[in-house]
Design a protein around this nucleic acid. Structure first.
Ligand SMILES: [Zn+2]
Ligand SMILES: [Zn+2]
Ligand SMILES: [Zn+2]
Ligand SMILES: [Zn+2]
Lengths: 163, 163
DNA sequence: TGCCAAAGTGTTATGAGATAACATCACATA
DNA sequence: TATGTGATGTTATCTCATAACACTTTGGCA
């Protein structure tokens, strides 16, 4: 995503080979679970992995157009929903963006709780998971981030709706 | 906010007196900090406190209309931005809603990290703060919530942008 | 093989959430 | 009372997301 600032941001996007490697792993995992990584789903995942940072839904749509494989909003949103359901991508609600999961191979429930360190200046975003997500401040400090504001949103069922 | 389910939800909204009490405290705090709790800001805070649950921005706008004091989106969004800046309300990005802070009197930085337990069935939302926000799962269990999915979004500055 | 149900996609249209830009107003202070 | 700052009103528009329905693909099964 865009940079609001002017200093250096040398983020090396992953090379094509490792992108395809990640796609292959995702594909294998889907097949193993009886799911299909169809063309639009694969393409969205590719774009997310290639970018290496959060992308807006409509930026993804624009990329499809550039590829000559035009896609309308529902196509991309459905692909994103699928990827999120499979634990291959995350929605970052506070910035209305989507990002490839940094640790899709984590075992157990594929849909893990995820925490993100988001730079409000340049948009650099880093996923932290597992134990780190719990002690977020420590993780932030270790990553060199200075945290201004954290949003924690736990979704589930209240006592009345548990039944 | 709306209920998607049909079972009982006996949430008692706060009585008018305690609402006004909260407004008075907020007003005092603003004045002490050299800020002004102007009419639209006060009205939005009143509506949020009265409701006791998260509200959508356009529901707030509709309420203004019902009052005869029509307000357009920018007015309400600006009021919300102010209230959030002052630690009097929170934005819950994952459901695009806004809620009065449950603990605006917490000392120290008025803009505290906040965690929310959100029922995806009935919308019941409960704020947990401080130590509880850290050990969210424990807090959720104590509140009787079963958590499906948690979003943690820490915003700040990355190492490159810290300067 | 041919049929069927289920899952996925394409397309159109529209709803919901949020902000840009600029004019005007209120208020503190000098 | 002049002046500058912050807040509000207003119009228009932008971004984000989904409903609804037709069509297609896929894989199981007679
Ligand atoms: Zn992840
Ligand atoms: Zn940065
Ligand atoms: Zn709060
Ligand atoms: Zn509930």
């Amino acid at each position: 995503m865009g940079h609001a600032c002017d200093h250096d941001h040398d983020t090396a996007p992953p090379d094509a080979a490792s992108v395809q490697q990640r796609i292959a792993v995702a594909d294998a995992r889907c097949q193993a679970d009886g799911e299909r990584l169809t063309a639009p789903r694969r393409r969205v995942l590719e774009l997310l992995v290639e970018s290496g940072e959060p992308m807006k839904a409509y930026d993804l749509i624009a990329r499809f157009r550039e590829d000559g494989q035009a896609a309308k909003p529902p196509t991309v949103y459905r692909a994103l929903e699928f990827l999120e359901r499979r634990g291959l991508a995350h929605r970052i609600a506070s910035i209305s963006a989507y990002v490839a999961c940094a640790e899709p191979e984590a075992d157990g429930d594929p849909v893990h709780a995820a925490a993100f360190l988001i730079c409000d200046c340049c948009g650099a975003t880093q996923e932290v998971t597992g134990e780190q997500a719990v002690s977020l401040n420590r993780a932030a400090a270790a990553a060199g981030y200075v945290i201004d504001h954290t949003t924690i949103e736990a979704h589930g069922r209240c006592p009345a709706c548990r039944a």
